[in-house]
């Protein structure tokens, strides 16, 4: 019997829903693919026609939440947002979408999104990373900061400032995710501060600040929490 593309898509969605519920209820480690397939009304082995392993299934759940969050972020953007505010909302909207799954996503993100990841969700992790960074590029472009500063820099991709800058961004972003997944403060309020500091650091680096260590910089070398006109350059 031929399975139509739409039937396949519906099955995939059912699996994602079942996985989301199992992970939320049991955590990532304790949940197993057999139960998830059963919850979705499928035979255990059928799951693997759709997802190669549990990690990729979990990362797909995360990716779909983040994709929906990006739409929310777009709808809420304000023309007067500063670069830091725009970047802040982009990340924060994603965290809010992942909030119901906070108990288990940290573990998955760590294995699936790290540049050094060796887990089973690399493909999906790469997709999530690419989609997120696309959003960041979009923000940078909107604030006139998309073009990497070439100048006299070597022309190889690895040493281009843009790549280094984005690597810094990604490292900071993963740090925020790691902090958030274990943040004991009420409503993870501390994460908001960590995120803000991280983005101030990133934006300061784009502007060529010489020392951006939190707490020791001059006001002139780091972007303020106060929206500044130069931010919209």
């Amino acid at each position: 019997m031929r399975i139509t593309a739409s039937a396949k898509e519906r099955t995939r969605e059912r699996l994602l829903d079942a996985a989301r519920q199992r992970f939320d209820a049991q955590g990532f480690s304790a949940a197993n693919t057999r139960d998830i397939a059963k919850d979705a009304g499928l035979a255990a082995g059928t799951l693997f026609n759709y997802f190669p392993n549990k990690e990729s299934l979990a990362m797909t759940v995360i990716g779909s939440e983040l994709a929906a969050a990006r739409e929310t972020w777009r709808a809420r953007r304000r023309p007067e947002d500063t670069l830091v505010e725009d970047l802040f909302s982009h990340v924060a909207t994603g965290l809010r979408a992942l909030q119901p799954h906070r108990a288990w996503v940290g573990e998955v993100l760590e294995t699936g999104m790290s540049p050094f990841a060796t887990g089973g969700a690399n493909r999906e992790g790469d997709a999530v990373r690419a989609a997120h960074l696309e959003g960041v590029h979009e923000i940078l472009a909107a604030h006139g900061a998309a073009e990497p500063a070439t100048g006299d820099a070597p022309s190889t991709a690895l040493t281009a400032p843009g790549v280094v800058g984005m690597h810094l961004y990604w490292t900071l972003y993963l740090g925020v995710l790691a902090w958030w997944s274990g943040d004991p403060s009420e409503h993870q309020a501390d994460t908001l501060v960590v995120l803000d500091r991280s983005l101030q650091l990133f934006v300061a680096s784009l502007r060529g600040a010489k020392d951006t260590t939190p707490g020791v910089t001059d006001a002139a070398s780091t972007e303020s929490q106060t929206p500044s006109p130069t931010d919209r350059a």
Binding site: R78, F88, S89, A92, Q188, D196
Partner: peptide, 20 residues
């Protein structure tokens, strides 16, 4: 005192009051 920017404040208030 130095202010929080609106993006931060918006998330913080959302967490506290349950809405944007």
């Amino acid at each position: 005192a130095p202010p929080m920017h609106f993006a931060l404040l918006r998330e913080h208030v959302h967490d506290e009051l349950g809405g944007d």
